[in-house]
Nucleic acid binder design. Structure first.
Lengths: 331, 331
DNA sequence: GTGAAAGCGCTAACAC
DNA sequence: GTGTTAGCGCTTTCAC
């Protein structure tokens, strides 16, 4: 049986309230001597506060829920780690949920988190548009990452990457290298995410006076497997000298497909990624990509959320992160 | 304000106790009609049980804590995802903690988890030997992964990989391919983990009647950066035709160093990894490695833990996972 | 079939 | 300076 505040109170010959005050440093009016006695008893008995009980009364858990599609995806791995670090610095811990991009899972997780009394939620990008009614119903402050989201009272912040700009940079970089027929690989064609990126890609071409061959645009998923498969399909049907991928995993898949087809990167075909996951520079052939400040975005999301939670004025913020080109060995 | 059991009780014209019974399906003696009324009210009012309050009385949280060194390390990413999936299947959720392999962090996390009333803990490998007194003091059932651990009442299971066997397989495979001077890269020389692996490596050589040149054995960390740096050092000082790495990240680092030095893999130097992280087959040059059933080990750990928690007999188990060679393109 | 009462460990308002 | 009381939302025992 873990020791409780009562155990300490009994041994110290004081009431539980006094112990509580001391242990919570609300001890302005507590005698020096009592205070010391309580602290040393706490240490001696190895007291650990029961957060459950505390949360029940304070209605604060100091826990933040994080919902991502899949932590196996390196982009989210990094994001989650960044959030966790940032949260810890601010006195919070995190509970992680993988939705696998399935709306029902996501909803189940949100309810779960609510039931567990999290103070706030970081809800991260998948293609599904989140259930606004649910979110409103829960009333838990949340920050939305990389997603279009309806305005809600409990929306603490949005943190988005300038995907349009990122895709523009990527395509412009490739065009600058002399490429004229550039393939475009991205996630679901329905998502705003992909739409924006495609706009950026097109804009870069327009500025350079180059037409975009629709044949070269392939949307599906942000996963490795799609990159692999789409590249093979592309190779079978048309010509191109570069691939502008909208995720690093897509780029990895594309690279494998190119190599399997006997093509060298970047000599026969250049490859640009997107995300700049921490693996990108560590690969055998370091990946040229678009940096989107993953770590920073996690930190920013948590800071915005905690500011919203702790600050009395509940300022909502809308953050947009700029991207940049990282030149390495594949393009 | 979220709706509570009382709200439902009031509207249904029954007591909170009755509502609780129905919602928890302990409704054998509750009238058909009351039952339906309660369920539909719950749905209508969008009732979410307050797990905090429930945990306080039941002394069960249905939460399992997971402590790993660093979720950014792909091996742990996978392990964590596996644990999370398995836990969910068994009706539990997980809270993740990154210790960064620092003993104080680990201890802080363990206390934190205890305070949050987790029912059990999965404690995973770093080099530090865990604080047995702390663990005993907490009294929370836990499973230890890949670590030597003192016997404790609350030790639900140990799940280890046969590292000695794995290293033996790796070295034997390389020897079978005709290599005679094989470098060995591993984590901290002090850890039992590395010691065991080195034994396996030596044993393979002994059986083949080959001497191990101490010069070729380099221990440091399981990280990419050490693989890179150690390989460069090796290259500068001696000759070898293969590297037997004790983690896939080490192998990645080694590969990069080889390529930077103008050497081709596997022609000029073969590289074997260890772990078989999900990225291994996805790389530009798919990595030959030792599979250690990461996903399975997570599932097994959770199952053992939950069996221990739920089962009345509290059977302790000691699981050892066998490894196998995965031949791909680097060796 | 259903309800009343007690209590999980803690905090907060107020009393002394 | 310290104690008393009430209550957070829920479950559980036992009485009716």
């Amino acid at each position: 049986m873990a020791t409780t505040i009562k155990d300490i109170a009994r041994r110290a010959g004081v009431s539980a309230a006094t112990v509580s005050k001391v242990l919570n440093r609300k001890d302005a009016f507590i005698g020096e001597e009592t205070r010391n006695r309580i602290w040393s008893l706490a240490r001696e008995l190895n007291y650990t506060p029961n957060s459950i009980a505390r949360s029940l009364v304070t209605r604060r858990s100091n826990v933040i829920g994080i919902v991502v599609p899949d932590i196996l995806n390196p982009y989210f791995t990094e994001l989650v780690r960044a959030c966790d670090d940032a949260a810890r610095l601010r006195g919070y811990t995190t509970i992680l949920c993988n939705s696998d991009g399935i709306a029902e899972n996501e909803e189940a997780h949100l309810s779960f988190l609510a039931g567990h009394g999290v103070d706030g939620i970081v809800l991260s990008a998948s293609d599904v548009v989140p259930n606004a009614d649910l979110l409103r119903g829960l009333g838990i402050p949340f920050v939305s990452m990389d997603r279009e989201i309806p305005m809600l009272d409990c929306l603490a912040a949005t943190v988005d990457t300038d995907c349009r700009g990122g895709a523009f940079q990527s395509a412009s970089y490739l065009i600058g290298k002399g490429h004229r027929r550039i393939a475009f690989l991205s996630g679901s064609a329905e998502s705003s995410n992909t739409r924006l990126r495609l706009e950026g890609f097109r804009e870069a071409h327009r500025r350079a006076g180059i037409a975009v061959d629709p044949e070269l645009v392939r949307c599906g998923e942000f996963q490795h497997s799609f990159g692999h498969q789409a590249t093979l399909a592309l190779l079978a049907g048309t010509r191109f000298s570069a691939i502008c991928c909208m995720s690093d995993m897509l780029a990895l898949g594309a690279t494998v497909a190119l190599r399997e087809s006997g093509l060298r990167v970047p000599d026969d075909c250049a490859v640009m990624g997107f995300d700049n996951i921490y693996l990108a520079p560590l690969l055998d052939r370091p990946l040229s990509t678009i940096d989107r400040r993953i770590f920073e975005s996690g930190r920013i999301a948590i800071d915005a959320l905690v500011d919203f939670l702790d600050g009395p004025e509940r300022q909502r913020s809308a953050i947009v992160l700029e991207t940049s080109v990282v030149e390495r060995k594949t393009a």
